[in-house]
Nucleic acid binder design. Sequence first.
RNA 1: GCCGUGGUGGUGGAGUUGGUAGACACGAGGGACUUAAAAUCCCUUGAGGGAAACCUCGCGCGGGUUCGAGUCCCGCCCACGGCACCA
Length: 1125
Amino acid sequence: MSQYNPKEIEKKWQARWEEQKLYKTPVDATSENKMYILPQLPYPSGSGLHVGHAEVYTACDIFARYQRMTGKKVLQAIGWDSFGLPAENYAIKTNVHPRINTDKAIENFRSQIKQLGISVDWEREVGSHNADYYKWTQWFFLLMYKRGLAYRKNQAVNWCDSCKTVLANAQIVEGACERCDTPVLQKEMEQWYLKITDYADRLIDDLDKVDWPQETITRQRNWIGRSEGAEVQFSVKDTEENITVFTTRPDTLFGATYMVLAPEHALVQGLQETIKNWDEVQAYVHATEKKSNLDRQVDQEKTGVELKGVKAINPANGEEVPVWIADYVLATYGTGAIMAVPAHDERDFAFAKKFGLEIRQVVAPSVAFTGKKAMKDGVETLNRRCIDVIIENSDGGKFLLLRDVDGVHFVGGGVEEGESIEEALTKEIKEESGYVNYVIRSRFIEHFNAQGYRITKNKNQITGSVWFHVQLTDEERVSCEVDEGRHEMYWQDKKKVATDINWDPHALAWNMFVEASTYSGEGVVVNSEFLNDLTTQEAKTRMFEWLEEKNIGKKKTQYKLRDWSVSRQRFWGAPIPVISNEEEKNKKRLYVCLHGYGSGKEAIFWPWLKQELELQGHIVKAFDLPNTEKPKADEQATFALEQVTLDENTVIVSQSHGAAVALRMLEQSGKNIAKLCFVDPVYVPEFNDKKRTVVEDSTTWEFDTEKVKALCSEITIIGDNAFPIIKKEHLEKMATDLDARLVYAQSNKPHFDGNEEQVILDEALISGLRPLTIQDLPVILPDDVDFKPTGQSPLNYSPSFQDGVEEKYGKGWKREVDTLDTFMCSSWYFFRYLDPKNDEAFASKEQLKKWMPIDFYLGGEEHVNGHLLYSRFFTKVLFDEGLIDFDEPFKVNRHQGLISGEDGRKMSKRWGNVINPTDVVNEYGADTVRMYEMFMGPLDQAKAWNTGGVKGVRRFLEKVWKLQEKLAETGTEEMNRILHKTIKKVTGDTAELQFNTAIAAMMECANAFTKETQIAKDDFATFVSILAPYAPHMAEELWEVLGKEGSATLAEWPAYDESKLVEDTLTVAVQVNGKLRGTITLPADATEAQAFEAAHAEENVQRFIDGKEPKKQIYIPGRIVNIVV
RNA sequence: GCCGUGGUGGUGGAGUUGGUAGACACGAGGGACUUAAAAUCCCUUGAGGGAAACCUCGCGCGGGUUCGAGUCCCGCCCACGGCACCA
């Protein structure tokens, strides 16, 4: 036997694996036997692989190798997130093209990963900076555009002045740029966005479908931040203006005593004439603009200015309320305005207190006997600084303490099923104190009822403690002592307190009232006219009805999630595949308006749209179509063509059945037009509505879509995603037939029957933007670029980038010069692994069907609200487009824990504590590094590097290596038993990703082997098999030594024999009164009686039984005997 | 502030549906081999007491349930992570 020489054997086996393409993805994989294992996409940084990378790849690799051995067909691949800022910044510094350094870094990463013995299918390697990859990143952008999910918008964005680029919300850490720590500024810019907010609900709801760490799910939910409430309109006195607010507490509308607008709110400028203190207001607005996001977050002191002369009307009670502006109201959330209910919202309360505004209580906390949660919310919140109370008892002057400050004593209140509160309370008090006092108790309840507090109960399922509070100041705080059933209170200085000190019902009532003003929990509504006496929940429902009746509000769901800004003014990314033309955008057009069934040119949004378009200088032709109650599309089209002459400058806007008319107009006229905009079109006459027969009759419902497409290249369909009568699938079909952009929007009134439907105006206008087609892809990132950041995209300065664009697309057309956020590249890479060379699609349907969804994804927790969310979004869009048949990409997702340096600090050059895995591999071998990283602790836990630990693992491997010397034909029975125990443990732990304990079990087994004089070859081979996923190189070498065929890493995973695990004798612990007093050895099949007999025979046990008669004896087979005397 | 996670020897960490707390490893101490060191091997290693058998105390703190609690329940403390004026 030679020395264990990892360097040599690792090299040998890695070369052999590569040569034999051992880990190439099996072609006979099916959706039943496949196993798609995905380590997160690395950013190939110049500093090379670090231990965190090694952790991810090793963990995935062990799992992948284990799965292969159990017969799964494994796909494991790797790729590079190779676009991005660090490479570009480095390029700027060194003046070397980022591609050169990126390729170098990848080269380095690849060899480091290979050195670790990671079993990936290298034929599937992808890099997001390669044109054959980013072609499809661009295609995804076009898909988003086509589905109305990519749009340009001018708005305040997060700007990093050091990186000279826009950042997504997820790229901001504590108000600063995640890359360079520069404070993030707000800057008004036109940017591309992806409408991820359209998917907010599904992104939340579908989290139920996945096996992810619970905290990850929660974090993503919170990030999306769905809250359900209402939009309520307040009118502004003496003006036509309204202020719409969003609130989750419509039940507190009667308590809205003032309003607050965000300083940026448009109405502030709109009310300039009315505002009497304009200078002061303007000064505040400017001061807010200057404040960075960070300041706004850190400085929680409330500031604001009243809009003097402006009063709003609270629609609930008709009262005039003042209107303020304050920066605690965010322009970007909800409507940028709030109704302030200081009595029941902490922020409003703080503001009202500071500026002396009225606080009106409209919710009385229920004193509810409904468990600790309700108690906590309801009562404890009221009295943060209080001690707990005290009910007087009937003897006069004595107290029953329910709980005191020091937790010395408390009475729990519990009501059994079928028991009344009275009975329960009686029982509790009796049990706890011996005192029963009906008088006091009923007085207590009466008292609270009189104060408007309601004692409620919940279907007799009442549990939890009952506490009542008296408010004291800090100085008055007392400590309480319980003395032999007599309850007395002392001040802190131990002076006895007069027994009746705080038990003044009026004092209690007063305290409760004052504190109730910040109460934000559930309760009973008071001071609110028609809502009085309803519970918070009931009042919400009632208020929704009321708002709808009065037409001043409606239910509304709000999200914290914002649309995803994807354009970057940087070089090293995928160019946005869009061309634009300013001239086209600004041209004056002829708009032809086509109304739907039973409608007319004066109905719904038409007059408003006409006015808005004319304001912008366009000509609008709107007319009533004939026979509108029994419309025939052909007839109406003929009529329409008599009213207008179509030309290349025409835009047709239609609603509902007007779509059919518009299509017929094109068919009949054969004229080219500029744009078609269909609003909730009727394209297929199948829907459940009374109009059905009418519409069915109206036309043949067959359209020459090819002709239409040829005549009009810009077609937009606007669908109402909440209107059930026009089916989504039909809109999708129409979009496919016409190659149209399909935009889903929330209309003001179903079917866009509202007045001001902004989305229609937006979509009807010619944007001057044109997405490229797939044939035009990829838009190649040019090389002739000066990448110095200027705040303008470097592509602006490329001499070649715009070459041939006008020739190809016409005069005035220019490429977009921004590039895509690299998160777009990494949002779909796991699809590309399936079919990396495909030039027809991002991946073939067949491969997608076979491999997706991903069975195991391991990646960093820091990506929860970025990459993980974006990838889910991409997947859902693909699903909606009908390209895939699943809508969650990552079935199982886990996170690796951070590895810190030996000193416990984060690994960093600054601390000089960086461990380079390659150095460790060179010194100890890859198998040692792999096993040590897994042995450190649970995969998902943070842990610190420890060189001693590395040595320990190396010792273990040496020990295993030396076992070769003891190989023989047979070994001991006992050894075989230990082996099977180990197989069982390692199998379970590996499958559950508990690699640390699996390794510990193998160590135990190896230690046992070491003590033997000879080891059965078969036993050792089995041991090598279970070691193979962890230390594949050594396993291969030993496999060879054993004379085994094939690769150890593809051998069959050993099964354990349950019957071999059974020991002949059991060691059972014996307790006397719950304390361990000895152990006994019993035959495996010992009866209870035998166990007791053996236990009693034990000398030390006898000592503690001390001749007494056992009251009770318990035997848990194989575990424990407990004798109670 | 809100949400989440966790708290076990000198250290990293094990602990099954509640059933012998501290597996495995590091470190430390002692010993063997060696001229010596490294490496390797053996023994000890939660604290306190005891010559020993054993005993007492021990899983952040205080209570509770149970024959029995690191594990379940109630109340608190601390640490870390996330979000942060989201109406």
